[in-house]
Design a protein around this nucleic acid. Structure first.
Lengths: 377, 377
DNA sequence: CAGTTAAGTTCAGAAAATGAACAAAGATGC
DNA sequence: GCATCTTTGTTCATTTTCTGAACTTAACTG
């Protein structure tokens, strides 16, 4: 196990990127002498390495960065069938990939993982003995310890201690997390939100997920429900939602909702792109649907900005485009519904991601726990 | 200055209340031996004291608590004229009070404070030499260092480095803060949110303010704007707001808005209480106004719950009542617009406070900085 | 009243961080 | 081209902080 100073150093590097010993010492409030020793230990452990040399006035500084092969993590997504398993290095690169059939039985899942792990590790020799954690992403609510699934409609679960079951079968430190929160962590650790302390990730797909980073840490909420924007009321007295309320964001702006509205209106559109094309050709129905969905998502994002004042809103999407009518209306609505003084102050970035986002996010949950530990006070 | 362990101990006690050395050692991850020494030092400094003795099996434990006279803080509210100055002890009790005329000139304010301070301190002899900080609460945005007012419409300020000016004139460590955020800090340190890590305070008055505590820390947002729920769009295409948008919560649910709506409808109501009385007598207009306001506030609170999943919503109000139609509708709307699964899971507590809330909150900002320091990583 | 239990203290030694001096490595100026 | 300057990073003795184990204290238990 690493000392607290060593963990802190890893955390600082993972947050601010490669840095010199002197800079790191200053940002951790330690002396250069102390930093020298800590860095030496972590380098000899193979966790850190020296990368670039920066020339300036005086002696050049040598940047320290996480050694990509310092630790490896497994990430599994329970959102698809077959379920992907990926092996990620310390820089978040996927170095191996397998799949396994999805099951709803926790014991079967653990068994499958234990069976598939050797195949995954065989793909990357250098990972031998350096597997430092396993993460699972799923749709649903997860408890604070990231050990137990409190509730998952998709999997039909209630209070399933999945992490413990997998840990027992595989012998590897295991943590589970909600899908959107896992994506947020991977964006923070390895993605485009590395240097932002406060941000929200909105994952746009058939459902709409969201997760917040506050003060450089994932904020899970008191019941693990922080970020559940899909069921905020956006159209009072709107259409009924499967959750029991009416006018939820999910009923208007999710990919599934958009497709269903198109179908209900008799449009032969299979995808958001089709609908965008129709709209650009002047189809009034397509325009109306996209307008309605874009306004709703934009309003929800405006609320997010007003309530939490994040430094970045990152919208990740597997399907669809955000450069058409839908995206434009969304941005306009977001701008129009925040304090005019703040309009344009919060960057809204959209990012197309591949279908391994969830598995990669799951792996980053394991990395996060390795880097930051369970409870950093 | 205190060592970081000493600060941490004070922070833990201020968060979890009086505790024995053994319990404190465990919760800080230190040995009993280390705790023994740290506690001894702080007791001899007069900052901690032994209070109750708890008898159980074995040697009784002695609870340690902040010494009420261990440190004193001054709090000043710039929200009223005359502006109140209060002296608070380490337990958040107000032990002295003065007022001074309000000014919009920072130099004059600092001058007035410097003049009034001796009078305030004279009221409490034991505070002599133990004044450990000064806090100022104001309406507007404050920078991250709690030193400079970025913007205050009420005071007509833009980038006013008030803390520095006051510090120079008085020689006392000074911090400024937004009014709602100051109240949140005082509820966390001394009030009813002591043991809640995640909560939001909604301050209801002529304006509507809000502040979040996340992970036991005040969350200020990336531009200091976290919690600005007053200008979230609650009635799309609603009445124009002074901020430039339409349908802001502030235009429907603030005390000022309610009174103005009543006046515009020709009701002779001076206060929320009058309006409640009218409503209870069956006045349809009063009922409609209260319904609209309560629904709006409830919807905003529902959004707050959906977005951030806090452990507590604390509504503080100087005027008005929350046990009438307005409060009932507010609660119903809040419940009806969160995921049914979560309805009722988040306590919504209302709390009537006196007009010294702001000054008390300001003092707690100083206490917070004394206890926790400027930047606890 | 002896035995048990748990809180808090003491003290030697270990661990971690500091400060100051110094070595290293390149930029700068004449 | 060479001495000088500037800044990074290391070394090491010293100081600070924490730990572990033994011990003292002060109850409760039967």
């Amino acid at each position: 196990m690493l000392t607290s100073s060593q963990q802190q150093l890893l955390r600082v590097i993972s947050q601010s990127g490669p840095s010199s010993r002197t800079v790191l010492a200053a940002s951790m409030g330690l002396s250069k002498a102390a930093m020298s020793g800590i860095a030496r230990d972590l380098i000899s452990l193979g966790v850190l390495r020296e990368t670039e040399t920066i020339y300036g006035q005086g002696r050049p500084s040598i940047l320290l960065d996480l050694h990509p092969e310092g630790a490896f993590f497994v990430g599994i997504s329970l959102l698809e069938d077959p379920a992907p398993l990926v092996l990620s290095d310390f820089n978040g690169n996927i170095v191996a990939r397998q799949t396994m059939p999805l099951s709803r039985d926790p014991d079967v899942i653990a068994e499958m993982i234990a069976d598939t792990l050797p195949k995954l590790l065989a793909e990357q020799e250098s990972a031998d003995g350096k597997l430092s954690g396993l993460g699972v992403a799923l749709s649903g609510f997860v408890d604070e310890k990231q050990a137990s699934c409190v509730k998952s409609t998709l999997l039909g679960w209630q209070d399933v201690p999945l992490a413990g079951i997998i840990r027992q079968k595989t012998g590897i430190d295991t943590f589970i997390e909600n899908d959107a929160k896992a994506v947020a962590v991977s964006e923070k650790l390895f993605g485009s939100a590395r240097d932002v302390r406060n941000f929200s990730v909105v994952s746009f797909g058939n459902g709409i997920g969201c997760a917040h980073f506050v003060g450089g840490k994932l904020y899970r909420g008191n019941h693990g429900g922080a970020g559940e924007i899909a069921h905020c009321t956006i159209e009072p007295n709107g259409s009924p939602c499967r959750c029991g309320k009416r006018g939820c964001l999910d009923t208007v702006a999710s990919l599934k909702a958009i497709k269903e509205m198109a179908k209900a209106e008799g449009l032969a559109c299979q995808s958001l792109n089709d609908l965008e094309t129709e709209a650009s050709l002047g189809n009034a129905v397509a325009i109306r649907i996209l307008h309605r969905a874009g306004s709703a998502l934009g309003l929800a994002i405006a609320h997010l900005i007003q309530f939490n004042d994040p430094g970045l809103i990152l919208i990740t999407h597997v399907e669809g485009r955000f450069d058409g009518l839908f995206g434009t209306v969304m941005r306009q609505a977001a701008e129009a519904n925040v304090l005019p003084r703040y309009a344009g102050q919060t960057p809204i970035r959209t990012q197309r991601v591949d279908t391994d986002v969830w598995a990669r996010g799951a792996a980053s949950i394991a990395a996060h726990n390795f880097l930051i530990g369970p409870n950093p006070n």
